[in-house]
Design a protein around this nucleic acid. Structure first.
Lengths: 169, 169
DNA sequence: CAGGTCGGGTTACTATATAACATCTGTGAC
DNA sequence: GTCACAGATGTTATATAGTAACCCGACCTG
């Protein structure tokens, strides 16, 4: 929970030290939700969290095979579906890839977890992907949708651009 | 908010009468841009515009085959790439599908066309997909991205929810 | 005509995702 | 104990989405 208490906003994923901690938080959360973070699911989550960038399902599958030779596409997709449902990871639609949810370990999200407003910034050059939880964006979107008569559910917000480093370089 | 003078905002796609008109606008626009809206590209655009919902590339391919028996995946993908570049259609990432751009025919977009801020509202029940051009959303996103040090490019904003009809029914 | 660009045909392939069925394991009913 | 069930995973096959590479013909230009 600590890790990035508000410092999480705008942090790149894959901060190496935080992985263990995030796994423990995920365990606790699943326990409380009454669902099972099985060894397989935990392994897949770990692979996602270890990566510095969003990973595709087949990239995950390749890595998973090192530990589980028998792994096949359904193996990884089922684990990913579970992790998505629990709000432990997100899918980046533009990349067909998966990334750990920065907010997953935060106490104030536990309990309603898998629905927090989030946005991704994706650097077109270096691939850096940053998760935001910008309230103003979420609110504007909510507003616009309501004006159009929509009752809104999950939103996919992904911006492609250049990160500070690449823009400077 | 020009064409349809505010009326276009929030309109469902596929208004049947408008297809011919949109095709003519597209022709004029391509002429001005110095690019060719060839018969194939025009056919694909027509198929996209005729549909009431976003269509996948292979659904388009099937329909295209009625007119062009030899059509293959590259046939339709190349046409779609062109139409995307010209800003005549959009891709809905969550559906891997394509839909006509509501703004394409608007005078004030011609000339810089393919980059206007847009958002989609997608009804999870009936599939109704509505395109918005909400300034507040675009601005909030721009802001948030700039604060994170990103120079922003294209944004994908897609909200899944329930349309007015389905929420009422 | 030589050489270029562009649109499109054709073949083959890669990548992403899911269906359907089989197996195993734990739990509660009886 | 064992029957039945549910959940998780294994296994095989297939569906869907997207691209690479090469060719050819039309057209334009020097």
């Amino acid at each position: 929970m600590a890790a990035g208490q508000g410092g999480a906003e705008g942090m790149p994923h894959g901060a190496p030290g935080g992985v263990e901690q995030a796994l423990h938080a995920a365990e606790a959360r699943c326990l409380r939700a009454g669902v099972q973070l099985t060894p397989l699911r935990r392994q897949v989550l770990e692979l996602v969290l270890e990566a510095e960038q969003p990973l595709g399902a087949y990239a995950l599958l390749d890595r998973l095979k090192a530990q589980r030779p028998g792994a096949a596409p359904p193996t990884v997709y089922r684990a990913l579906d579970f992790l998505l449902e629990q709000g432990l990871i997100h899918k980046v639609e533009r990349l067909n890839a998966f990334i750990g949810c920065v907010e997953a370990g935060h106490a104030h999200h536990e309990g309603h977890g898998h629905d927090h407003a989030h946005q991704f910034l994706i650097c077109r050059q270096c691939g850096l992907t940053v998760e935001l939880s910008d309230h103003a964006v979420a609110h504007a979107l909510d507003d616009a949708a309501r004006r159009a008569g929509f009752r809104i559910g999950n939103a996919t917000v992904e911006v492609e651009g250049l990160c500070a480093g690449c823009a400077a370089g």
